[in-house]
Amino acid sequence: MKVLLTGGSGMVGRAILAHDAAREMQIVAPTSAELDLTDRSAVMAALAAEKPDVIIHSAGRVGGIQANIAHPAAFLSENMDMGFNLVLAAREADVPRLLNLGSSCMYPHDAPNPLQEDSLGKGELEPTNEGYGLAKVAVARLCAFTTRERPDLAYKTIIPCNLYGLYDKFDPAVSHLVPAIIRKLHEARENRAETVEIWGDGTARREFMYSGDLADGVWTAVKRFDDLPGCMNMGLGYDYSINEYYEEAAKVIGFNGGFTHDLSRPTGMKQKLLAVESQTAFGWQPQTLLRDGIARTYEFFLDVVERGAA
Rank of each mutant, 00 (worst) to 15 (best):
residue 222 V to Q: 00
residue 243 N to Y: 05
residue 172 P to A: 08
residue 251 K to R: 14
residue 47 L to F: 00
residue 48 A to P: 00
residue 285 Q to I: 00
residue 135 A to K: 04
residue 33 A to V: 01
residue 13 G to N: 01
residue 28 V to F: 08
residue 155 Y to N: 15
residue 180 A to Q: 12
residue 231 C to N: 02
residue 71 H to N: 12
residue 187 E to H: 06
residue 239 D to H: 14
residue 173 A to P: 00
residue 304 V to L: 14
residue 300 F to D: 10
residue 6 T to F: 03
residue 231 C to P: 03
residue 169 K to T: 14
residue 122 K to Y: 00
residue 168 D to Q: 09
residue 258 G to H: 11
residue 70 A to F: 11
residue 219 W to R: 04
residue 295 A to S: 14
residue 98 L to C: 06
residue 186 H to M: 04
residue 181 I to W: 04
residue 217 G to P: 01
residue 191 N to P: 01
residue 80 M to G: 02
residue 128 T to A: 04
residue 280 T to A: 08
residue 166 L to T: 13
residue 12 V to I: 15
residue 154 A to W: 01
residue 199 W to Y: 11
residue 181 I to C: 09
residue 91 R to Q: 13
residue 92 E to C: 09
residue 62 V to K: 07
residue 48 A to L: 06
residue 266 P to Q: 11
residue 55 I to L: 09
residue 286 P to K: 06
residue 61 R to C: 07
residue 165 G to M: 10
residue 299 E to T: 13
residue 49 A to L: 08
residue 161 C to P: 09
residue 30 P to C: 02
residue 72 P to K: 03
residue 251 K to M: 01
residue 121 G to P: 10
residue 202 G to Y: 07
residue 64 G to F: 11
residue 224 R to V: 00
residue 52 P to F: 00
residue 130 E to P: 00
residue 143 C to A: 12
residue 157 T to C: 11
residue 163 L to C: 08
residue 4 L to I: 07
residue 145 F to N: 06
residue 49 A to P: 01
residue 146 T to D: 12
residue 204 A to W: 02
residue 93 A to P: 05
residue 209 M to S: 09
residue 92 E to H: 15
residue 218 V to W: 05
residue 207 E to M: 03
residue 20 D to G: 05
residue 52 P to M: 09
residue 221 A to M: 02
residue 28 V to T: 13
residue 285 Q to N: 03
residue 69 I to A: 04
residue 292 D to L: 04
residue 250 A to M: 03
residue 173 A to F: 01
residue 209 M to D: 05
residue 186 H to T: 15
residue 10 G to S: 09
residue 256 N to V: 14
residue 25 M to D: 05
residue 310 A to K: 03
residue 156 K to Y: 10
residue 82 M to G: 13
residue 261 H to I: 07
residue 295 A to Y: 06
residue 238 Y to G: 01
residue 63 G to Q: 15
residue 137 V to Y: 05
residue 28 V to L: 12
residue 158 I to L: 14
residue 1 M to A: 08
residue 247 E to I: 06
residue 160 P to M: 10
residue 283 G to W: 03
residue 86 L to P: 08
residue 97 R to Q: 01
residue 64 G to S: 06
residue 277 E to F: 00
residue 255 F to V: 14
residue 179 P to L: 08
residue 185 L to K: 10
residue 6 T to M: 04
residue 105 C to T: 15
residue 161 C to E: 09
residue 200 G to C: 05
residue 75 F to Y: 12
residue 19 H to Y: 00
residue 286 P to M: 07
residue 175 S to H: 10
residue 20 D to T: 12
residue 190 E to L: 12
residue 230 G to Y: 12
residue 201 D to C: 03
residue 167 Y to Q: 14
residue 155 Y to T: 15
residue 141 R to L: 07
residue 223 K to V: 03
residue 25 M to S: 12
residue 143 C to S: 13
residue 279 Q to F: 01
residue 250 A to C: 05
residue 252 V to S: 12
residue 269 M to T: 15
residue 203 T to P: 07
residue 28 V to M: 09
residue 271 Q to N: 09
